Structure formats: structure tokens, C-alpha cells
Computed example of a mutant assay.
Amino acid sequence: MKLFMLKSVGIAALMLISVLTGMQLANNGIHKMKGYDDPNFHQAVSLNDTDNHISASILGNDISSHDIEAKKKKLEEISAYNFFSSMGKKMSDGISNASENLIQKITK
């Protein structure tokens, strides 16, 4: 089971990298086709390293570790209640209990 999960995560990561690479290649192709640089087109993925500070940009949106930490703290403070998640848990518990009872009745 562990090997299956490892393979699945590896394949998902490979697919993500392939999609981002394809988007970058398509962006470069659009630049070559136009013949000039349009400031409205952004690089699909770009990494900038300046003075021990690495910043990343995906599809023109800047991402930094500070932003991620701030969002994580904000989510922890909110501790939002997800209605659909709780309904899904209740449904899965109900189905599990019903199937367990049915199996017990059949086997007796």
C-alpha cells in the first residue's frame, strides 16, 4: 500500500511539473509567434533569487513563504466550519454502520 501511494504521489508530482512546463513552452511559443514582448503575458513559472530571498511567481501571482505562513495563521484563527465536509463525514459514518449491521445480520 505504501509503495502504491508513493507511486501515485510521484506520478501526480510529475504531471504537475509537466503541466507547468507545457504552459511555459506555450507562453514562449506565443512570444515567438507575436514577434514582440507584450507586458500582459507573464511567465508561467519564474523564480527570482536576490540576497538570500527567493521569490516565486506562478501565472503572474507572486508567492513567498511569508505569504503562506500568514495565510496559515489566518486559517488557524478562523477555524472555519465546512458544512459539506461534516455532511460527508456523517454520510460515510452512516453508510459504514449500515453496511456493518447488514454484514453482521447476514453472517449470523
Results as ranks from 00 to 15, higher is better:
residue 63 I to C: 05
residue 71 K to E: 02
residue 63 I to V: 15
residue 41 F to P: 00
residue 30 I to T: 14
residue 81 Y to K: 13
residue 33 M to S: 11
residue 16 L to D: 07
residue 90 K to A: 09
residue 13 A to M: 14
residue 93 D to C: 10
residue 12 A to S: 13
residue 36 Y to P: 14
residue 37 D to S: 13
residue 32 K to D: 07
residue 76 E to D: 09
residue 19 V to I: 11
residue 67 D to V: 14
residue 43 Q to D: 13
residue 37 D to I: 11
residue 105 K to Y: 12
residue 63 I to A: 04
residue 51 D to G: 07
residue 83 F to M: 11
residue 72 K to P: 01
residue 13 A to W: 01
residue 93 D to G: 04
residue 67 D to W: 11
residue 37 D to F: 09
residue 36 Y to K: 06
residue 89 K to F: 12
residue 99 S to R: 02
residue 11 I to Q: 09
residue 45 V to C: 06
residue 65 S to F: 05
residue 16 L to A: 07
residue 85 S to P: 00
residue 37 D to T: 05
residue 102 L to M: 08
residue 73 K to F: 12
residue 9 V to K: 05
residue 82 N to W: 06
residue 64 S to E: 11
residue 66 H to W: 10
residue 15 M to P: 06
residue 74 K to N: 10
residue 10 G to I: 02
residue 4 F to T: 08
residue 38 D to Q: 07
residue 18 S to F: 12
residue 9 V to W: 03
residue 44 A to H: 02
residue 96 S to G: 09
residue 90 K to N: 00
residue 68 I to M: 06
residue 86 S to F: 01
residue 108 K to Y: 14
residue 90 K to T: 04
residue 31 H to Y: 08
residue 23 M to E: 01
residue 67 D to H: 13
residue 3 L to S: 10
residue 47 L to M: 08
residue 29 G to I: 15
residue 50 T to R: 06
residue 14 L to M: 07
residue 82 N to K: 15
residue 90 K to D: 07
residue 25 L to Q: 12
residue 88 G to P: 00
residue 13 A to I: 12
residue 35 G to C: 08
residue 107 T to K: 15
residue 83 F to N: 09
residue 81 Y to L: 12
residue 54 I to K: 02
residue 75 L to E: 03
residue 93 D to N: 11
residue 26 A to D: 11
residue 105 K to W: 04
residue 95 I to T: 02
residue 38 D to A: 02
residue 24 Q to N: 14
residue 17 I to Q: 08
residue 24 Q to F: 01
residue 57 S to R: 02
residue 82 N to P: 01
residue 103 I to D: 03
residue 62 D to Y: 03
residue 11 I to H: 03
residue 14 L to C: 12
residue 96 S to H: 07
residue 52 N to D: 07
residue 73 K to Y: 04
residue 77 E to D: 11
residue 64 S to G: 15
residue 18 S to L: 12
residue 57 S to Q: 07
residue 54 I to H: 04
residue 5 M to V: 10
residue 63 I to N: 01
residue 71 K to L: 15
residue 6 L to A: 08
residue 52 N to H: 06
residue 93 D to K: 05
residue 79 S to V: 13
residue 87 M to I: 14
residue 1 M to I: 08
residue 58 I to G: 00
residue 60 G to Q: 02
